[in-house]
Amino acid sequence: MDLTYTAAEEEFRSELRSWLQSNIPDAWSAPGFWDALPDDESFGLRRDWERDKALAGFAGIQWPTEFGGRGGTPGMKAIYDVEMVLANAPRTVNPLGLTFLAPTVMAIGTEQQKRDIIGPMLRNEVIWCQGFSEPGAGSDLAALSTKGVRDGDDFVVNGQKVWTTNAVHGDKIFTMVRTTPGSEKHRGISMLLIDMHQPGVDARPLKQMSGASEFGEVFFDDARVAAADCLGAIDEGWRTAMLLLSFERGASGIGQYTEFRRQYDTVVDVARKLGRDADPVVRGKLAKVLTDLECLRYHAMHVQTQVEQGRDLGFEASMTKLIWSEPSQDLWEVFDLILGEDATLDEIDGVDLRPLHGQAMWSRSVTIWGGSSQVQRNVTAERVLGLPR
């Protein structure tokens, strides 16, 4: 395992850090700044900032230069993830497109799809969302019922998707549709790329308990999409989806460690300010979380080393999901324990808790989305450890 970076990577760190310091207003780092903005205003501000970052050459760090990327190393991508957290940079508005869709298009897209999708996505000219989950198909995606019926050179799509991130801001959606009538399970499914601004597509927000509307549901009512806008082969969407999801790996754990360690320090600071840091139960639970976070750090460096050596990690991504999601959730459970019966208050003894409550509520979801902990344990047992089913 290599815990060092090359001279070129450290030079990139310095360049990126300097740009971030010059291009993130101090007001953006003030507690509650982003929470106080209306959703549309927050999204627009982040969209413009991220476009400027891409134009400055700080996007698509590992993407090939032919696609507008920087052509950087896995180490540079890890540095990018860390420095974005340390600078309190705004969250990306195009996470699913950049993380999943773009590398899939690079791998199997047609030349026309590569030209039409990758550049505009990198510059945030087109926001992509992902249409996988349905009311009756969550963890069991193969149970999806949204249908696409062939009509000449088009598919006519009818059905519903739910828990769609950025649904109300999305320009296009990559979605799984059953394109062979009567097919079952993984067969007869295609991944279609659908314009969300056309007639027959209706995106509605879903309000979360935090008050945010990050998710939405999407209804298709005779929406049309050209058969040429199928990513991968028609009726081979399951294969395309597995390729797409495989890109959630690499050095992402390093940025997550940095973010969670900062959250940990914040929770410890709250415990001290409230005089609850001497409780042996609290101290024991905080110690366990810290130990788990340090395990995440070393696991992430191990994964990065393997990626740099050209190894295809495959199902080891399930291990990474477990190693970061469960300690994150444990941390915010300790936060609730520290607050006790005061957990519903916005402020205690002059300590503003509002920015932390949203993170605590969000943490309840992290062991569910992206594959639940139960699913990840099964995958790890069967595909990594070779245990029988």
Rank of each mutant, 00 (worst) to 15 (best):
N88V: 00
V162E: 15
S190R: 03
D140K: 13
V105N: 01
V105Y: 02
R204L: 13
Q208V: 01
R178V: 03
I117R: 06
Q198K: 14
V156Q: 08
I173D: 00
R178L: 02
G138F: 12
R178S: 00
K207T: 15
C230W: 05
T175Q: 04
F100C: 06
G170R: 01
P90V: 09
L193I: 11
M121N: 05
D195N: 15
R224A: 12
D195W: 07
R178D: 00
D116W: 01
V218W: 07
G200W: 06
L98P: 00
G152W: 10
W128F: 13
S133V: 12
E214I: 08
A228C: 04
P90N: 08
I127L: 12
A212D: 13
G200F: 06
T175L: 08
G136K: 14
V105R: 02
D171C: 00
P205Q: 03
G97A: 12
H169G: 00
D202T: 13
K207I: 14
T110L: 10
K207D: 00
P205E: 01
D153I: 10
A228M: 04
N124T: 12
P95E: 12
L192E: 06
L144I: 11
F100W: 11
Q130C: 14
W163I: 05
N94G: 06
R91G: 02
F174G: 02
S213F: 00
Q198S: 10
E214L: 12
Q160Y: 07
T99L: 12
T164E: 11
L96D: 14
G232Q: 09
Q160W: 08
P135E: 10
N88R: 13
P205D: 02
S133N: 14
D140R: 14
A227V: 14
N166W: 03
E134T: 12
G200Q: 08
D151M: 12
K147V: 14
W128Y: 15
P90I: 10
W128D: 01
K147R: 15
I117W: 02
V105S: 01
E134A: 03
G119N: 08
G170M: 06
P181F: 05
T165K: 09
A228F: 03
R204W: 00
G131A: 05
V177E: 09
I173N: 00
E111Q: 13
L231R: 02
N88S: 13
K185F: 12
T92W: 02
R150T: 09
S210E: 11
V225N: 03
T104K: 01
V168L: 10
V225A: 04
F132L: 15
D140Y: 13
P135K: 05
R115E: 14
A226Y: 04
E134Q: 14
D153M: 04
G159M: 09
L192F: 05
R204H: 09
T146G: 02
F220S: 04
T165H: 05
A223R: 04
H169D: 11
K114C: 03
I108T: 04
N158A: 06
V156R: 10
M191H: 00
N158D: 15
T164R: 06
G159R: 09
L122V: 09
G148M: 12
A223C: 09
W128T: 08
Q130K: 09
